[in-house]
Design a protein around this nucleic acid. Sequence first.
RNA 1: GCGCCGUUGGUGAAGUGGUUAACACGCUAGUUUGUGGCACUAGUAUGCGUGAGUUCGAUUCUCACACGACGCCCCA
Length: 461
Amino acid sequence: MIQRQKGCNDIYGREAKIWKYIDQVIDALMEKYNYNYIRTPIFEATELFHRGMGETTDVVTKESYDFEDKGERKLTLRPEGTAGVVRAYIENKMYGDPNQPVKVYYNGTMYRYERPQSGRDRELTQFGMEILGSDDPLSDAEIISAAVNLYKMLGLKEIKVNLNTLGDNESRNNYRKALIEYFKPHIKDLCEDCQERLEKNPLRILDCKVDQENEILKNAPKTLDYLNEESRDRFEKVQEYLEIMQIKYEINPSIVRGLDYYNHTVFEIEAKVEGFGSNNVIGAGGRYNGLVNQLDGPETPCVGFASGIGRIVMALELEKVKLPIVEDIDLFLMYVNEDEKKYAAYLSQELRLAGFIVDTEYTGRALKGQFKQADRLNAKYTCVLNSEDLNNNEVRIKNNKTKEEEIISLDVLIYYLDEKINTDFPEEYEEECECGHHHDEEHECCGKGNCGCGHHHEEEE
RNA sequence: GCGCCGUUGGUGAAGUGGUUAACACGCUAGUUUGUGGCACUAGUAUGCGUGAGUUCGAUUCUCACACGACGCCCCA
């Protein structure tokens, strides 16, 4: 049997509904923030990804899906979204658009040749957003706020924003030097991996899992002490805007992004949920003022964010968040003989076009089996089409919850169903927001906190 | 790339070096019920990840590979 490829997933059933729902929330949110959807190719010239990340990083040498096509072009399946967006920005000369900055978002599959583990697959789906052409700290804050609001809208409560700054290039280099100098005398007391990291990527030592509790790490120099004045001011501005937007965050000096093109703001958003594996970062981003230029575009300050949809789904499930996913149908049509079946075909067509979710029998089951199927599909109503009733221009509609059955004239069936569905099965509004109160339509949120539940928040309950 | 554990039907799983691979759920059919959901009856893996080896004989032992789970490295 041919199996699916390692680290790839088939998403279907209820899970697929969750994915589609998330996509909808993303689209709705991005509309509010006025970001435009952008779709770039899934493969690009290998060089695009290799440049700007440095040829020697593990990411490039070991973890990218490189291949050659029949025209001997060297191609790579995109491992992330930003490079393609930046390429498109440059190639389409979006920097010349009078409408600046350019705000775009994407949502698609990415490919990384990795060893699969919890929260890490070879094919993954990422949503991301970028602001190209603004160096304003407000744009950093906006990106972070949008990320936080997305998670809140989806219903995640246990999230934590870790914020840090790398400063500009000068600050960053000074800090790097200071770190190496600081760690060098202590190197023997650190784990093997950290000894490797010292020259290669000293910032990573701060993030080490083995030495997490080591005093040496705790007393290590902090980024913030090596910022020049300009970078420090900038960081303070970002924080100020976040506070105005009431976005909670924590400054965490161990947040370092892997690649060189990052500067100034960097952040990671963790899902703090019981049961999450070691990869609990559901989204991350930062400022990358150098990248556009590195890829032959004009000097362009940018900031962006990306989030793995798979990890969001995982977090939603672990938190047992109730999602507004339709898992039932309005009506299941049953029949026994061929004439009734034909009528089922006709009626399902009519009702579907009228906007109802209708299903019927296709596998030749006996009536008993059809009732079971109706239950499995969570049908709100069932209807056994009976030749006798049909001759009288009537059908029997049974509420599948109360088992009450009514005989309805076919002429008014649509009106009947329309009304009954709303009265028998009202939509439930029950959500809990940060304020800790359950609330529904009558009992609204007290307004403390930013729950994104979609209801208007009054000052008083 | 490294480490650890795992892989039995539609699902959850038990089990053994040797004629029919337990049990449960599910599913299908039948009896009964005015049109089901309860109950009862019957059916439902020539098969135990793939390949090779040990053996008279392997799903059970050994090895390799694949896949899954988790962790390390790395994390765009």
